[in-house]
Design a protein around this nucleic acid. Structure first.
Length: 319
RNA sequence: CGCGGAGUAGAGCAGUGGUAGCUCAUCAGGCCCAUAACCUGGAGGUCGCAGCGUUCAAAUCCUGCCUCCGCAA
């Protein structure tokens, strides 16, 4: 559709990269390592991090500075994007930027705006696709290279790459896998896109699902759910921020667990085993074996260490 | 100065003034068809750092600092 017959190397195009977190920084680094001409990086403003509230550079900014690429961090891109006109990009790539990109921006680059989305669209449009693929115990997810349009995550899909979810995966490992897949997808398909070889496929509206951001109150494990669903939440919230339950009024974060069975019934939250052979609690339907956890005020530890210092838990209940 | 918890053997904890203890792990030996089970014995800590603080006596009280963690942002 663009310049067919006239070879244009994607690496010669002026590309603006928009993204903020670690996963985005990984893709940015790959593009820079492969000599893509990133002329600017747009990221969320730096935010205070940690107990002390120290201002920390966002991950994409760190990478950009390493390669001497100018960084822009508008508080509201919706209102503040005239600087892009001067940069005059040919193409904009976005991956987990964190703000809605206004239509005014979408119209600037001649080759348009592409987004990397961490799911196989049309499933899991929205903010937390990677976490929700775990919450819903998906076996396969992936990353989709898509056209950005006004409606969020609704544009044409140009290419995608599948990622297999193992039982041992959690959010941290799955983010890493998606990051790797995104890098491969970029290197394999961006040139094809520029060459006009990717027609793009409209999303099947009947198959669209959405995933909202996870609210802090959802980090508390809901004992009305089945063991399988709880297991999904534990994996989705691990290693950060950690799904938790209360035991004796103390917050216990569960970082790693196993689904032991998904049909036994009993008192939800009751600890039915607490010895060397395991630390298991019952749910409404099935039970879960805790492998790594953290008591509030303490650091993360394996279940054997925890039980060593916290004896007599058999029969007690999480709530 | 946002609130709070904690730093004692490799790990998890107890120990709020008087010669440092428990559980697990570890090592040696024993029992057993066998064992992650059980029995016996051993090794392993200047009790986060500093004050040459208070005291006849400090892990324990006081002062300052460092580090880790939960919450709030």
């Amino acid at each position: 559709m663009y310049n067919i017959g006239m070879a244009i190397n994607v690496k010669e195009l002026r590309i603006v990269f928009m993204g903020t977190p670690e996963i985005s920084a990984g893709l940015l680094r790959t593009l820079l390592d492969n000599k893509y001409n990133i002329v600017a990086v747009i990221a969320q403003p730096d935010k205070p991090v940690g107990r002390k509230g120290i201002l920390q550079k966002v991950p994409t900014k760190v990478v950009a500075e390493e390669f001497n690429v100018p960084v822009y961090q508008p508080v509201k891109i919706r209102k503040d994007y005239e600087f892009l006109e001067e940069i005059n990009p040919d193409l904009i790539l976005t991956f987990a930027y964190g703000q809605i990109v206004p239509e005014g921006v979408l119209n600037i680059p001649k080759y348009g705006c592409l987004n990397f989305h961490g799911s196989l669209l049309p499933k899991y449009r929205g903010a937390a696709p990677i976490q929700f693929s775990l919450i819903n115990n998906e076996k396969v997810t992936g990353v989709t290279l898509m056209e950005m349009i006004k409606e969020m995550d609704a544009g044409k899909m140009y290419a995608s790459k599948e990622v297999v979810i193992e039982d041992s995966d959690n959010s941290t490992s799955l983010f890493k896998k998606i990051e790797t897949a995104s890098c491969e997808l970029a290197l394999e398909k961006l040139q094809d896109y520029i060459d006009g070889k990717l027609p793009g496929e409209e999303q099947d509206v009947s198959k669209v699902t959405f995933c909202p951001t996870i609210k802090p109150e959802e980090e508390k494990i809901n004992l009305d759910l089945s063991a399988k669903e709880i297991w999904g939440w534990i994996r989705a919230l691990s290693d950060e921020p950690g799904a938790f339950l209360y035991l004796n009024n103390l917050k216990i974060k569960i970082f790693k667990a196993l689904l032991i069975d998904d049909n036994s019934t009993g008192q939800p939250g009751e600890i039915i085993k607490a010895d060397k052979s395991g630390f298991v609690f019952q749910t409404k339907c099935g039970c879960i074996s805790i492998l790594e956890l953290q008591k509030e005020g303490k650091s993360r530890m394996d279940y054997k260490s925890f039980l060593n210092g916290n004896q007599g838990l058999l029969g007690k209940k999480f709530n």
